[in-house]
């Protein structure tokens, strides 16, 4: 058991130290979750290849309890957005995200997923998945090496460690984390922009 599980605030009598561990509900709950994060088998571009490499024997995601990559979003805890997000692909990514059960995490892997990357200027590239999804960890690099990805996932585990059951969003009432799915029109249309789109006469920029 990792030492983070022990609750140092509660004194344990010396003679019981070998037999008794005291922890908090949050810690044991987070420990369970952080040690079995199942990512979605979902590669977008070049970074996806590095993600496969990270899952293979040299870097071995299994050491972090993350080796079980599920192709179905219903069985996953983590979506690693690994590569360039294009406008054509975005609706599918959002749908996949919406289908994931809570608690769910988003890792933006690589420059493209973080902020558009070298292809940012292009007409069909979304400048960062964080325009649409709540990203938990950003991993810069083009592409990040598998070790950098592992570092990012460790960073995610640290984030999970700090969460508290009482405060996390997915146990709050009336709290939906569903993201409206964008539409493909003459260009990408985000439903959240509808009011603005109706209000002002759009002009070509």
């Amino acid at each position: 058991m990792p030492e983070t599980l022990d609750n140092p605030e509660v004194p344990v009598p010396e003679e019981l130290k070998g037999q008794v561990k005291i922890t908090t509900l949050d810690r044991i709950y987070n420990w369970g979750r952080r040690s079995s994060v199942w990512p979605m088998m979902f590669g977008l571009a070049c970074c996806g290849i590095e993600m496969i490499a990270a899952a293979a024997s040299r870097y071995d995601l299994a050491r972090f309890g993350m080796e079980i990559m599920r192709p179905s979003p219903r069985q996953t805890d983590l979506i690693i957005v690994s590569g360039t997000v294009t406008k054509k692909m975005l609706p599918q990514i959002i749908r996949l995200y919406n289908q994931m059960p809570e608690p769910k995490y988003v890792v933006a892997m690589g420059a493209c997923a973080c902020g558009g990357g070298p292809f940012k200027e292009g007409y069909s590239v979304v400048s960062g998945i964080d325009k649409f999804l709540p990203v938990d960890v950003y991993i810069p690099g083009c592409p990040p090496t598998p070790q950098a990805l592992l570092h990012g996932l460790i960073t995610l585990q640290k984030k999970i460690d700090k969460q508290s059951i009482r405060k996390v969003k997915w146990y709050q009432k009336h709290e939906s984390r569903e993201v409206p799915v964008p539409l493909l029109g003459p260009d990408l249309i985000d439903p959240r922009d509808f009011p603005e789109l109706e209000e002002c006469e759009p002009s070509e920029s």
Binding site: P140, P144, A148, H151
Partner: peptide, 13 residues
């Protein structure tokens, strides 16, 4: 240095 992961990009990237 490849260990650059962060929780936020707007302020730091």
């Amino acid at each position: 240095d490849f260990e650059l992961s962060s929780y936020d990009r707007q302020a730091t990237h």
